[in-house]
Amino acid sequence: MKRVEVLAPAGNLPSLRAAVDNGADAVYFGFRDATNARNFEGLNFSESEAAQGIAYARQHGVKANVVLNTFPQVNDPSPWYQAVDAAARLQADAIILANIALLRYCRERHPGLPIHLSVQASASNAEAIRFYQRHFQIARVILPRVLTAPEIRVLHDKVDVELEVFAFGGLCVMAEGRCHLSSFVTGVSPNIEGVCSPARAVRFENVDGKLRTRLGGALIAEYGPGEEAAYPTICKGRFQANERVYHVMEEPGSLNILEILPQVIEAGVASLKIEGRQRTKSYVGTVTKILRQAVDSYYENPAAYRAKPAWIRALNATSEGTTHTLGTYEESWQ
């Protein structure tokens, strides 16, 4: 049986090298514009940097996937088509696409370039996946964070494409590609601009010894002295509802599947994805290394696999809120 792949994020060349040097089987990155959903300042790759990155990965037997996971805009779609052509020119191992227009263009112009269906396409079921496979011959689908591990196993038996799932990192609690919370409050949309909750819409205020975080003017959370403040996003905010003040959607923290790694691997997934192209090379290096160890430890003796406390501690230290969750992989979370 083919071993599950450890897939690491790269926001720049140093992060890409950190991923490769720490045992990633594959890396993914995007170009420096609105064609990918981590369109933050100072991040991502020019075409020549992408060429260097792909060369470095190849030298070490590591695959490189190019991300183009936003939707071309009505008034100027050309950057998106140019980015597809660039990925083909660079001979990326795969291109990650979310939009039907680009899927069709890529399939017609670059039939040899394997397509991975982005999580932003929100294909969370066999019918949707088969639709994309029928028309665009996708090789892999990246699953939205909405399915439980048993549901992924059922899905695996129903479709004839590889499944990629999120294993660690920031947790979207909404169905990816179907969330307008950021644009509702800030005017900036993951689907349109490739950005969720942009830094320019964030404000930190000190009021009477308390720290308040705001997004687009809306109060997201208030922290007492010594409390660690999380980056303000709507889905991790503390609000009033049903006569309580609480995290109405989700607490800040990271997704971490190490405790149920065997269940996820045995569900038939092909790739374990680490979230965080916007994170530092030290984050990428640390998380890649621990996931590598965990996966290797599983294959050495699946029945004896246990998530080591040292792994969990090291991973918690990389994440805000320093807590973690199994998220939607566990039914009780829903």
Binding site: V173, A175, R178, H180, A241, N242, V248, M249
Partner: peptide
Amino acid sequence: LTFSARCYTARAFRLSKA
């Protein structure tokens, strides 16, 4: 605005979707 696998009304009552 969005969909989730999680039920936020159930969560408000400390219940799960199931």
